[in-house]
Design a protein around this nucleic acid. Structure first.
Lengths: 340, 340
DNA sequence: ACTGGCACTCGCTACAGTCGAGTGCCAGAG
DNA sequence: CTCTGGCACTCGACTGTAGCGAGTGCCAGT
């Protein structure tokens, strides 16, 4: 029941043709377009086997074949050749990313770039707080009982949070608090901070104890528990590409899923180092995205991963090209971050 | 050629019916559903006049009537009665907005709330920098030649920017710089800062002059020129409501327009105090949004306006309800901001 | 000024017929 | 055993026709 080389070649041809033309592909057109060296009838037999094995299917009895999710999977795993980026794309990437002034700027440029290059919906996760470490903490007095806590992470992310104090705290004490939290926390990974924060409270002088306790609560909430991961999105208009044929006619579920940040983070954020993950149709746990595929990877300075990025499109997508682009963009962004 | 009361009543009935049913409305159904006190034939005559005047039109010869943009305009201006919010809506608003912890949080909650209540696409502009004043400026040394400039505005917005110095600056000097910019700039409107920033450079001690010059450039860029207005978006999935009938079958242009922040800011951000602006279809200058309507208003603590918010939907929308909701949400957000 | 009546328009649906791409199968050749 | 050419068959897409019905415009009458 194994698939010989020719059957695999047929599957590859079907996937490539279908992705290109968006139409079910028949045996005759297939032999015309690719040099398979055999007759349509032979191809038909191969197709029958491929269909039996669940790699392709017929939309209707008298129509051509269309790859199934399983077919795409096989294609991605074993049949697709890596498509090198065109020089034009390389140039586009570089041009797009130089001149970024700011982490926000980097993320926005990246997501737009990805959307533009892949002509799909792009998602970029901001560098994860959990994977960052503290570069600096700042306490800015807003009023006598209010402080603005600003945290700057080594990834360039800046988070702020209002701290509502129970009692007024004199300016000098604020300076002390500031010095203390910085001494203790700077340089440590955010995920490692909870014990440190606790120690801070325990060790602080009595007159600071109250303020420090409130502060520590906010610190823990902001930096650890509600470690709110942010992300940027672009290219939703690309969903309408290919008419309404993709996504079985309704963008509804897709758009809904795209608004659920949690869902997206799950898709994009679970990246393993240097792996590109491809989720095809059904493999996706999210019901709303059963008709979509996601190509994602991690990025970060050097070999560490601080966040994920990727694209989402119809299962009928150009996997080799998309994978290449996603990887390339992730690499460039990593380099950019490393420069900071 | 004036429209007497009955003709206006007919127009109102047409708009209300069409908005509710989404189908062209004919003379017979109209008299059945509304108590107009006249026969269908009479209504037909009135309709003919309304059509001649451009308030309604027939999709095809033998179909019912549909309001034109002009018809909606008249309806909004003169015919619609303000629809009071339901208690449920009131409660939803309050429940949604309490517990916001952060400006980001407020904006996100607001935009989701608006999308949910109006069942349309919601847009909320972050408090405009140009309309804010400086509450505090912070300089955080990142390396010997790099500073992170953090600005906190009175609206709660926090902006940061990397400052790349030409030469290393000792820690003491950073403190001096920090003190100087705060003394000079805190409390002033961002739009008024340019001369102040210039003065800062002129007045600074020689050994600070170089650093201050670079700093001032970044300040001007960040706070004035590239006064990057941000916004939040939600409810794009609502565009698919009403099948593909709205927006003449293609979401493409709408989605494209929604990705152009500049475009949205133009729509939402030009709010006059306490006015609710309604742009219907063609009245919109953006080509991509010719099939859409926008209801927007300004918000801010007290009577000042610091930003805009609104919703975007098909021209066939429930204007009275939408207007009421948009207004109510804006008012609540204003109150929330005033508490800070 | 309003109404009832009437002829007319035209989109929608259903139905029948044709076309053609594509299939499965089979017998024969290599 | 594998491949090929041939052939009958299927079935969706498209076309044309016909009937239906909602809705209109107009006109004559009250």
């Amino acid at each position: 029941m194994g698939l010989d080389d020719r059957k695999l070649a047929v599957l590859r041809a079907i996937v490539e043709d279908y992705v290109a033309t968006q139409e079910p592909v028949g045996s005759k057109t297939l032999v015309e377009r690719h040099q398979l060296g055999v007759s349509p009838a032979t191809v038909r037999n191969d197709m029958a086997v491929l269909e039996e094995e669940g790699y392709i299917r017929q939309p209707h009895t008298s129509a051509g074949r269309v790859p199934t999710d399983r077919g795409y999977r096989l294609f991605v795993d074993r049949l697709s050749r890596v498509k090198p980026l065109s020089p034009a794309e390389r140039r586009a990437i570089e041009r797009f990313l130089v001149g970024a002034v700011d982490l926000d700027d980097v993320v926005h440029r990246t997501v737009r770039l990805l959307a533009q290059l892949t002509r799909q919906v792009a998602v970029v996760q901001y560098p994860s707080l959990a994977r960052s470490s503290v570069r600096h903490l700042e306490l800015v007095p807003i009023s006598t009982t209010r402080l603005m806590l600003v945290m700057i992470a080594d990834t360039g992310r800046v988070e702020q949070r209002l701290v509502e104090l129970a009692a007024p705290v004199p300016a000098d004490d604020v300076l002390d608090l500031r010095r203390l939290v910085n001494e203790k926390l700077v340089g440590s990974r955010l995920s490692d901070t909870p014990p440190l924060v606790q120690a801070l409270v325990d060790e602080s002088a009595p007159h600071l104890r109250g303020a420090m306790t409130t502060l520590s609560t906010v610190l823990l909430e902001t930096l650890v528990e509600r470690t709110e991961e942010r992300l940027a999105l672009a290219g939703t208009a690309n969903l309408t590409r290919g008419g309404l044929l993709d996504f079985q006619g309704s963008l509804r579920p897709i758009l809904e899923a795209l608004e659920e940040e949690v869902v997206l983070l799950k898709l994009i954020g679970e990246a393993e180092p240097s792996t590109t993950r491809v989720l095809i149709g059904d493999e996706n746990e999210v019901d709303n995205l059963r008709a979509a595929s996601v190509v994602s990877t991690g990025y970060g300075p050097g070999t560490t991963i601080v966040g994920g990025l990727g694209v989402l499109g119809p299962t009928r997508m150009d996997y080799p090209g998309t994978i290449a682009t996603v990887r390339a963009v992730a690499r460039y962004v990593g380099e950019l971050l490393a420069q900071n």
